[in-house]
Design a protein around this nucleic acid. Sequence first.
DNA 1: GAGTTTGAAACT
DNA 2: CAGTTTCAAACTC
Length: 784
Amino acid sequence: MDTPDRAAAAPAAASTRAEDSPLFSFIDSLSPIEPVKSAYSASSIQAYHSLNITSISSIFTSPHDNAQKESKLSKSSFAEFSEGEVCADESDKNKPSRSSNAVRLFACTSTLTQETHKITSSVSKGTVGPPKGPSDLPQPAQFDTGSPDHNTTPCHGVRSDLKQDKCRKLQAFQMAKNTSEKRKCLFSTEDQLLDGCQPEKHNDEILGCEWNDLISATSAELIAYDEDHKGVQLAVSNAESCGFLLSKLTGDGNRTHPSTSTQTYYRELIMEDDQTENGQLVPDGENNISSEEIQDNLYEANGCIPIGCKAETQQQRGMRRRCLVFEAAGYSNRIAQKELVVDLSVSTCKGKSPVQNHSNTGKTPSPRVLRGIGLHLNALALTPKDKMVCLDPMASSLVPSSATQQEAHGNLLSAGENFVNTCGELLELQMDDDCSAGVFTGNDNNSNQSNSPQKKRRKTDNGDDGEACKRCSCKKSKCLKLYCECFAAGVYCSEPCSCQGCLNKPIHEEIVLSTRKQIEFRNPLAFAPKVIRMSDAGQDTGEDPNNTPASARHKRGCNCKKSSCLKKYCECYQGGVGCSSNCRCEGCKNAFGKRDAAVTTDTEEVKQGGEEAENCGKEKENDLQKANVQSEDHPFLELVPITPPFEVSSSLLKPPNFSSAKPPRPTKARTGNSSRSSSKAAQAVHSRKFSKVAETGLDEEMPDILRDDASPGNCVKTSSPNGKRVSPPHNALSVSPSRKGGRKLILKSIPSFPSLIGDAISSSAMNNPESAFSTASPLALGPS
DNA sequence: GAGTTTGAAACT
DNA sequence: CAGTTTCAAACTC
């Protein structure tokens, strides 16, 4: 047992000592193996691009698409692993083929930790059998076996399965080793990717799986184990490191060497931990690993991030599409750290979430949740389709460099990160899952994300079609103008973009930020979601679905003339919202709510029912169904996604917590925590219209209201940017034309945002993690 | 895929 | 603020 014998050592019992044991030293000596990794990566580089693209696409694409793609990849990769794990080893060496990626990774790990693997593999899985020299199938095998789900969802399943099985079976010690090694491999791979090496698709998947394992291991197992050692620090540092990681990610070339100040910042935070880990476990560039792990942990902590997200993140990394916000994220991370720590500790939710995610994701790779999603996701919410996918998971709105803003935003971001998700799947998951707590946040986040602007919708739409990855194709604007969807969404352009002379890249971060500031200076709402859905407020408030369509209004209002607001040319229509009095459109026939109707609603909601119902109701419904069919497809989405993240995104200021965003229906409970906090703010903020709903004390619980969706009574309360009341058009969503008539929605989101510039203040309010979590925030945050 | 249409964004 | 130009998405063929 105690004996260091590698062969015998395997059993967990030995684990604790292993570090001290010669094995450990041996492993360390093996560390040089990385070169091998590089070699693998190098071979795979070409493929990587494709990967990146695919990955990106997957990110943006609807879960379905992703599922297909990923499924293909994952299946193939996993299949390869499972079926020919043994072969894989050979293939690694001999074959540069795609499978190689996974294999490669494994090979790397195997090479690094052959002995350890032997032990671990034998221990962890007897199935694997004695590790073979060069190729360590065991790990892969572990993954494969670990999660049968892998096929469908490479990453997700793994975690849960692995965690449970491994954690228990494998001793922490072994886990630590494996994870550490894996980390090395993975990170190395990532690094390589970052460096430009192209990992194969498989890599992504594999990575995801490994990540998951790592995460799981790190979060739960490692922590426990490491406590004695250093690993503990990881967990602790995770939060901090998150920021670091983000910084890395953000940095184009960050890679191993964080060039950015943020990186340095995080470095300091992480230094100790990483170093310790590195020193012990990985001599090489652990920094990366630790950071990544941290991210994963963070994600988990967030609880929302579906596996796909992770994968996406990885992909994104490869793609280098990073959230501009990350820096801010660092700040958020601080706050988040606390949460994270808790979350980590609370592995249950997290662990579940991932699992759940799996189940969900099973369909689709990753409905991802993008943490910082962009600004204009509003429309997305409407878009019922899962298409809505986040533009960039990571991509968040651009954040001004100013520390103050960052901080404020950071907080928001942190909260916002959670929000990221747009996908309905998440919602569903959340709904289904009780883990909600973590999920909720995620949901909230999701909802927030959903806020993304129309553009995102477009993208998403495309994504559904399979073009998910499609992004901007700017030629003259250099992707530094609002013409550019990516820029407008606060996201860096990535491979999927077909833009020319693009400056919207991390490399040109300064330019991007400066440009963004200029634009915001010119128009503070430029990056705010163009369309505010009542759903945002409404969801929160729990307004009627009926109202929602109309309730949501275009901030500025469209100026359509020929499209009659029946085509995507119309921002309102694109955003799935009805035209409002702000619109200057001619011949408005917006299916979601005609301008006239909107006006009427503004004037008198009561009337809405009549006119709108008459005018819009039938037509709208038809149109809606035809056009977006949001509600039908995803009633949830309507409610949930709608949330107004925008502000956050655009201004990043507020994290809308959309507790309300939470899936209205499913469970109200979830929101409870956050919601309350938010509710306070919300109450304060929304004295008026909320009063009814909010007074109930439900503000927080928009869900309740939302629940009401069914009940006509609910009125969407959204604070319009203008502060106007928006009466929802009722129907758009289908639903019952019945309106309660009464309530007006207040769209807060829009107005509230001063955007980057002034938000710090507001953000400060947001800063409260609670508030952030508390979904109420949007309202509360809202400019009262 | 190329060309046209459209309306927002940008500019004056 | 209004008018014009520029731009890229949306749309059509």
